[in-house]
C-alpha cells in the first residue's frame, strides 16, 4: 500500500486548459519525494490536489490506501507548508504552532508542551509570544515548519518552502529539512524549481513539464539515465551539453540523433585535436573558485564544461575538447532517450 497514489489524475481550472495530464505516481510511506519542473508546469497544482485544496477532474487520488478524491482537506490529516508561509497574523508563534492541535481538541497543557518542544527543535523558543509580523523571513519559515510538525501528520507537503529565503539561509534550511525528515520519518512531498535542492534532498525525484510527468526515479537514475532530453538538461549544473551527432567526430550511429554529454565528461586541451577531438572556440569563461566554467562554440553546437584552474589551456593556440563518448546519451527528435546497441 502506497502512502499516496495518483492514478491518471487530470486537472483543468474552471474548464480552462488542462494543467495536469493523466498523471500517475505512487509514493511509499516515509519517502522524500521532490517534484521539480519549470515554473507553471503544474507542481503546485499537483500538491494542492494531494492536499485536497483542489479537486481532480479525472482519475483517482488515494491516501493511505483509501480513495480521497472527495475528502475535504481537514479530513486528510496532511500537513502543508506554503510558499508564503501563510502564518496567522493575529496569533503568536505559540498559537500558530498549536492551532491545529486546538482544533483537534488537544488540552491546553498538552498543546503548550507540544508547541514548546517543536519550537525548541526549531530554535524558536525566544519568539513564542511574538506575532509573525515581528519575525524575520527565516524565523517565519521555521514557524511554518513548526506548525506542520506539531500535529505529527504522517504526510508533509511543501511548496517551494525555501524559495523566499536568501541563499545562505536556504542552504542551511535545506540541511534542516533533510534532518527533519530523518527525525520524523514522515512521507514528504517537496516542490521546488531548484535542481540542486531536488538532487540533494530526494529519495526520488519527479520531473514535470507542461503538466506531464516525464520521469520519476532516484536522483542517480535521473542524473545518469534521464528518460528525456528535458530531464537531462534540467538537472545538473552546468547543464548537459547537447551536440548534433552528425558533427561529432567518431560517431557512427543512426541519423538525426542528439548526443548528450555532461560537462564532467568533457575536457579541454590546446593544440591539434586528437582522434575524436572536437575543435572549439572559447566564448566566455566564468571563474567560480577552484574551477572555471568555459563556454565554447563548436561545429556540433554550444559546449559548456568545467576546468580546474591549473589545467586551463594557456596562450591563444587552437583549442579542442575531448568527448568521453562512452558516457554519451542519445536523444531522438522528440527528445526521448534511445539506446544505441
Amino acid at each position: 500500500m502506497s502512502a499516496i497514489a495518483l492514478r491518471n489524475v487530470r486537472k483543468a481550472y474552471h474548464g480552462g486548459p488542462t494543467v495536469l495530464h493523466d498523471l500517475s505516481m505512487a509514493i511509499e510511506a516515509g519517502e522524500f519525494i521532490v517534484i521539480v519542473g519549470p515554473s507553471g508546469c503544474g507542481k503546485s497544482t499537483l500538491l494542492r490536489l494531494i492536499a485536497g485544496l483542489e479537486r481532480a477532474d479525472g482519475g483517482d487520488i488515494e491516501i493511505g490506501g483509501t480513495r480521497a478524491n472527495d475528502l475535504p482537506p481537514q479530513d486528510r490529516d496532511i500537513a502543508m507548508i506554503f510558499q508564503n508561509y501563510a502564518l496567522y497574523p493575529h496569533m503568536s508563534v505559540r498559537e500558530n504552532i498549536a492551532f491545529g492541535l486546538e482544533l483537534r481538541g488537544v488540552p491546553k497543557r498538552e498543546r503548550n508542551a507540544r508547541a514548546e518542544s517543536v519550537a525548541g527543535m526549531l530554535q524558536l523558543d525566544p519568539y513564542l509570544e511574538r506575532k509573525p509580523g515581528a519575525l524575520s523571513g527565516g524565523q517565519r519559515q521555521r514557524v511554518a515548519m513548526g506548525r506542520a510538525m506539531a500535529r505529527k501528520s504522517s504526510i508533509f507537503l511543501m511548496d517551494e518552502p525555501l524559495s523566499n529565503l536568501d541563499n545562505a539561509l536556504r542552504i542551511a534550511m535545506r540541511t534542516e529539512v533533510k534532518e527533519l525528515h530523518r527525525q520524523l520519518g514522515a512521507t514528504m512531498v517537496y516542490v521546488t524549481h531548484d535542481q540542486t535542492e531536488a538532487l540533494s534532498l530526494a529519495d526520488r525525484i519527479a520531473v514535470m513539464k507542461d503538466g506531464h510527468l516525464l520521469q520519476f526515479d532516484t536522483p542517480e537514475a535521473i542524473y545518469d539515465r534521464p528518460a528525456h532530453r528535458f530531464v537531462a538538461g534540467f538537472l545538473g549544473v552546468p547543464p548537459m551539453n547537447f551536440l548534433s551527432a552528425k558533427a561529432v567526430p567518431g560517431y557512427s550511429g543512426p541519423e538525426g540523433l542528439t548526443i548528450g554529454l555532461r560537462p564532467e565528461h568533457l575536457s579541454i586541451h590546446a593544440g591539434e585535436p586528437a582522434a575524436n577531438g572536437l575543435g572549439v572556440r572559447l566564448l566566455l569563461s566564468e571563474m567560480t573558485g577552484a574551477t572555471v566554467i568555459l563556454h565554447c562554440e563548436s561545429a556540433a553546437g554550444r559546449i559548456t564544461l568545467n576546468c580546474a584552474r591549473k589545467d586551463m589551456p594557456q596562450g591563444s593556440d587552437a583549442l579542442w575538447v575531448n568527448l568521453e563518448l562512452s558516457h554519451a546519451l542519445y536523444f531522438d527528435e522528440d527528445g526521448k532517450r534511445v539506446e544505441l546497441s
Binding site: 485544496l53 506554503f82 501563510a86 496567522y88 482544533l103 506548525r147 500535529r151
Partner: peptide, 12 residues
C-alpha cells in the same frame, strides 16, 4: 492561503 492553512490544520 490563510484559509487554506487553517483547513490543512483541520478547521471547518
Amino acid at each position: 492561503a490563510l484559509d487554506e492553512a487553517a483547513y490543512m490544520d483541520g478547521a471547518r
